[in-house]
Design a protein around this nucleic acid. Structure first.
Length: 1029
RNA sequence: GGGCGUUUAGCUCAGUUGGUUAGAGCAUCUCGUUUACACCGAGAGGGUCGGGGGUUCGAGUCCCUCAACGCCCACCA
């Protein structure tokens, strides 16, 4: 028998076991059913999942469960991402905090070992979270971006690109993280505004002639980089550059509003003053640059040229710029244009190297201090301004980034990017919502080469073995040896001679498969493997085909590639989605998925991104513990509209009394909080002291899931009612045409709802789907159908038919809700199957053991009946009218009131058999019904003009004259207001003449009806007033 | 600087192609334990749709503009 309460924890555990035993979510690659496949966006093993993942995976599971029910061979490929730099950074930070060790103290192998331990721990946790949410992944196919299956794909891809010469080694200015000692990509850098200084420095001119300055003044926020200066630049045509700026300002002035004008005028004045003061000097310097003159770089006593380059803006600073090609992106470009030497003055750990002369070994702050002091001593230091500086910070280590010239491996992107752009432009890949196409295309259109090497230890080691400093002869000789080796290992070795930046040559060997024999053969020739690993996104980019076994031509790959859809969040459209498309095209020759759905991001109640560091992050397991997995999923689906953000106010749950406490900006980061309800304290994630840590911990949840939990409960109880009334159920074939209106109404509504849910899921309109199901289940199935079924089930004549229809209704509802709420539906399905294993309208059939593997409902268009729905709505309106009158008269629910209904003959035929339902739904005893029905002596009246029905309630036993007068007067007020509005409209000449005739006619009609209502209600009022006297 | 999104009831959100006095859930108030459900039922109050301007017979819905908030990209000696 079905329990009184739904114990979600207990049910979920049982059901998960049953599904697993029956292999419900396992996909068979040899099946001849049509395939549907999704790969999970692999969560990073950096930590546990948060609510954003909860949303992402709920949405995927909804689609997956629906497709499975539709009869597709459905594969949801699960897995996790090694997340190279992020994971290594977390583990390194930990190492430093707990053991005060660096990775160098530990060594490569030991560090990697530690990271594997971390990975195992968090992967376990992540899988637990996904399973508890009900994600129906094919767990037997679990993948990890560093596992041998994925590694094979990485090696094959790298080898292929190397052979195609799309992999190359180059010197580039990279964002150097001095803590992690690796290059990080632009995406891993954020800017922070900090207080800093703007230092003016003077470089002495060598042999100044008459009319030439003795010094050139430049300004910088990073004075220590002067050690790497290789030039000073001025603009090649300062006069016209200034003209251009002036012209732009004039233009702006012409378009500016009054309040902006004075500001712009000031700017123009300043510019003109500058022109007068500085132009002669800048022109002189320009001429000096042209004749190859130099300045002396102080402290290092190096001669560096004055060069002319447009990068030096005459309108800014001193008009001159120091050029440090190895440590500034813009200067790097200047350096290339002017063919300047590039001097790297930093060691990987951020200290000054030998190029910095006596400053060698100093940290950046120390070097800055020393350089400033020494320049000051030489009287070469000018003004020091205070200034706010945008400092680039590594997102991984939270330490400042140093631009740094380093050798890196690159992927040439030009053709790859174009292929990925084409795939979206010609809609082989469709992106929803469409607005996200643009960002994707814009990003790819830049076709910037992709730096793929990372100076890390955690990741796919770059499969290149190299030897540097070779002469041409050496290189040729080695090359010959490699050719021979390649013959011994066909298709395994590719090599290339390249310049190594100096006068000498480098030889690079790429080995395809991870094979010790081949690798040691290569090593025996004196090659060493590159110490770097690949950017994490390199392996992520292969995910849709690597997980299916590529490069092997597996059955899985043939069956499930391309995958059907990708559901992910917008922040990785470029980093991940775009790269998957181009790698899929390069490797397999087909796009990796046909559709991409980008879902909203969850913010907290203040609009902040949820994160552990902000303290507002929600663990899906905490929500599941409190509200159940179905409530978590329904609540998330309910908010997945197509906006780009959704807000989710966050609460702490008091562990002592379960009360929810709003999270505020203040208490978000407190170590302990006292519950305002029970006064007991609890700890938060910020607890540090032993005392705080000893307290019970308060979970972070959101009350947004309460409604969803209530809905689960509602469904459970409606199911319980149904099951309690299915005793002696006998499946019976039903003649739909002969069913009473309420049954036809249910079937008609089911037909519509089924279509809405099917279409909604197809179009990723999750919140609409959730809403439709919520409204149907609660306001129609429970509030009306179940209520009406009560008297019918106790009537022996109607019992069998009613049982068959209500069992069918519940059956269909369970199927429709299953993708969103898998556990409660599966649980009820089990009990329903015990009582009614064969069920269905019009013909009962075996329902099967699991709703999960049952057939998705069909929207029976032939059941849809507008007439029936209209008539039923009439009934619902009458019920509402009676309830309204009862409430305004304060009549107790236990008291039955006599009711008379005036209506036309066709309605009478319909409503007369429904007398019992008026009793059940409104405690109303319908004493008269028909065309000639009169008001009662002591009457409350409500007209339903559209239906041409008048509802009369006999108030003899209950009359509260003042209350009734109040109700009527309020009603009259509303009617009067509407009449005035309509009259004004219809008296408006231009409305009548210009609005479409049907609109005008409609207004006229409704005015007539309103006037009738007015007469009727004021009649009721005067009768009541007469009676009062 | 460029782009995208948001701004509707106390809170979180719906509002299709412009057409009756704008909806839901939560919260609030009133009433209520008749055997599915108080994680419930019935009823009520509450918004003029961020500001301004415009198009139109008619605008939450279209156009212009301003503002606030959020996000992305670029740049910043």
């Amino acid at each position: 028998m079905i329990p009184i309460r739904f114990d979600h924890a207990d049910a979920a555990a049982k059901i998960l076991q049953q599904w697993e035993a029956a292999k419900c979510s396992h996909a068979d690659a040899s099946s001849n059913k049509p395939a549907f496949s999704i790969v999970i966006p692999p969560p990073n093993v950096t930590g546990a999942l948060h609510l954003g993942h909860g949303l992402n995976n709920t949405l995927q599971d909804i689609v997956v469960r629906r497709k499975r029910m539709q009869g597709f061979e459905t594969l949801w490929m699960p897995g996790t991402d090694h997340a190279g730099i992020a994971t290594q950074a977390v583990v390194e930070r930990r190492l430093r905090e707990t053991d005060n060790l660096t990775r160098h103290d530990l060594g490569r192998d030991a560090l990697v070992e530690r990271i594997w331990q971390w990975k195992d721990q968090y992967e376990t946790r992540i899988l637990d979270q996904l399973k508890r949410m009900g994600c129906s992944c094919d767990w037997e196919r679990l993948r990890f971006t560093l596992d041998p299956i994925c590694a094979a794909a990485v090696r094959a891809t790298f080898f292929d690109l190397f052979q195609k010469r799309r992999i190359y080694r180059g010197k580039r200015l990279v964002n150097w993280d001095t803590f992690l000692q690796t290059a990080v990509s632009d995406d891993e850098v954020f800017n922070e505004t900090r207080k800093g200084h703007f230092y003016h420095l003077r470089y002495p001119v060598i042999d100044p002639q008459a009319g030439e300055p003795k010094f050139i003044e430049i300004a910088t926020t990073r004075p220590e980089t002067m050690l790497g200066d290789t030039a000073v630049a001025v603009h090649p045509d300062p006069a016209s550059a200034l003209d251009k700026v002036a012209a732009a300002l004039q233009q702006k002035l012409a378009e500016a509003s009054d309040k902006e004008k004075s500001l712009i005028e000031k700017q123009i004045a300043a510019l003109e003053k500058r022109r007068t003061a500085m132009l002669p000097l800048l022109t002189t310097l320009r001429d000096m640059a042209a004749s190859g003159r130099c300045v002396r770089l102080p402290l290092l006593d190096r001669e560096i040229p004055i060069v002319a380059d447009e990068w030096a803006k005459p309108e800014l600073g001193t008009g001159c710029v120091k050029i440090t090609p190895a440590h500034d992106p813009n200067d790097y470009e200047v350096g290339k244009r002017c063919e300047l030497p590039m001097i790297n003055v930093l060691n990987p750990d951020g200290t000054i190297n030998a190029e910095g002369g006596k400053y060698q070994g100093l940290s950046i702050p120390a070097a800055r201090k020393a350089v400033i002091a020494d320049l000051d001593a030489l009287s070469l230091l000018g003004e020091i301004e205070d200034r706010e500086i945008e400092l680039p910070i590594s997102d991984r280590s939270k330490t400042p980034i140093e631009p740094y010239l380093a050798d890196q491996w690159f992927v040439a992107m030009s053709e790859l990017s174009q292929s990925a752009m084409d795939a979206v432009t010609d809609e082989r890949v469709k992106i929803f919502p469409e607005r996200f196409r643009r960002g994707y295309l814009d990003w790819l259109s830049e076709k910037r080469d992709w730096p793929v090497s990372r100076q890390l230890w955690w990741g796919h080691r770059i499969p290149i073995w190299s030897k540097y400093g070779l002469s041409q002869t050496d290189a040729n000789e080695l090359s010959d040896q490699l050719e021979k080796l390649a013959e011994r290992h066909p298709d395994q070795i590719s090599h290339r001679i390249d310049s190594d930046g100096d006068e000498t040559l480098a030889l690079f060997v790429c080995v395809r498969d991870e094979d010790e024999t081949v690798e040691s053969d290569v090593q025996s020739l004196g090659f060493e493997q590159d110490p770097d690993v690949l950017d994490t996104w390199f392996s992520s980019a292969l995910w849709p085909h690597s997980t299916l076994g590529w490069p092997a031509q597996t059955e899985e790959l043939a069956k499930f590639y391309p995958t059907s859809t990708l559901i992910t969040s917008r922040d990785i459209i470029t980093l991940w989605v775009a790269r998957m498309v181009l790698m899929g095209l390069n490797n397999v020759g087909e796009v990796p998925f046909n559709e991409v759905f980008i879902h909203a991001k969850i913010l907290d109640g203040f609009g902040q991104t949820m994160s552990k560091t902000a303290g507002n992050g929600i663990d899906p397991n905490d929500v599941t513990d409190k509200f159940g997995p179905d409530a978590l999923r329904f609540g998330l689906a309910r908010l997945a509209g197509d906006t780009q953000d959704v807000r989710m106010p966050v609460q702490y749950e008091c562990p002592s009394c379960e009360k929810l406490i709003d999270q505020t900006r203040k208490n978000q980061t407190l170590p302990r909080i006292e519950c305002p309800a029970c006064a007991k304290p609890f700890s938060t994630q910020w607890a540090v002291s032993a005392e705080d840590k000893a307290l019970p911990k308060g979970a972070v949840v959101s009350e947004r899931f309460e409604t969803a939990r209530n809905f689960v409960n509602k469904l459970w109880n409606a199911s319980r009612f149904t099951l309690m009334n299915l005793e002696g159920f006998t499946p019976q074939e039903i003649d739909v045409a002969k069913l009473p209106i309420e049954d036809k109404w249910l079937l008609s509504r089911l037909s519509t709802v089924t279509r809405q849910v099917s279409d909604g899921i197809d179009q990723y309109q999750y919140s609409d789907v959730a809403q439709v199901l919520f409204d149907f289940a609660w306001n129609e199935f429970c509030s009306f159908y179940v209520e009406i079924a009560k008297p019918r089930l106790s009537d022996p004549e109607q019992k069998v038919v009613t049982q068959n229809v209500i069992a069918h209704g519940l059956d269909q509802l369970l199927r429709l809700l299953h993708p969103i709420m898998p556990f409660v539906t599966e649980s009820v399905w089990g009990y329903l199957g015990e009582l009614a294993p064969k069920r269905g309208v019009p013909r009962p059939v075996d329902a099967g053991p699991f709703v999960m593997t049952s057939e998705w409902p069909t929207a029976h268009a032939e059941h849809h009946d507008v007439q029936i729905e209209r008539q039923f709505s009439e009934f619902q309106q009458i019920v509402a009218a009676i309830r309204q009158i009862r409430a305004s008269q304060n009549i107790k629910p236990s008291d039955t009131v006599p009711v008379a209904i005036r209506c036309d003959e066709s309605s009478r035929e319909l409503l007369a058999p429904m007398k019992a339902y008026f009793l059940g739904l409104a405690s109303a005893d319908v004493v008269a019904i028909g065309a000639d029905v009169q008001a009662f002596e002591t009457d409350a009246h409500l007209g339903l003009p559209e239906a041409n029905v008048d509802v009369h309630v006999d108030l003899e036993q209950f009359i509260d004259v003042d209350a009734e007068l109040g109700r009527l007067e309020k009603l009259l007020g509303q009617i009067t207001g509407q009449i005035t509005g309509k009259e004004n409209k219809l008296n408006n000449e231009s409305f009548v003449s210009r609005a479409p005739v049907e609109i005008v006619a409609k207004e006229r009609e409704s005015l007539v009806v309103l006037r009738e209502q007015y007469v009727s209600v004021s009649g009721d009022i005067s009768r009541l007033q007469a009676k009062k006297k």
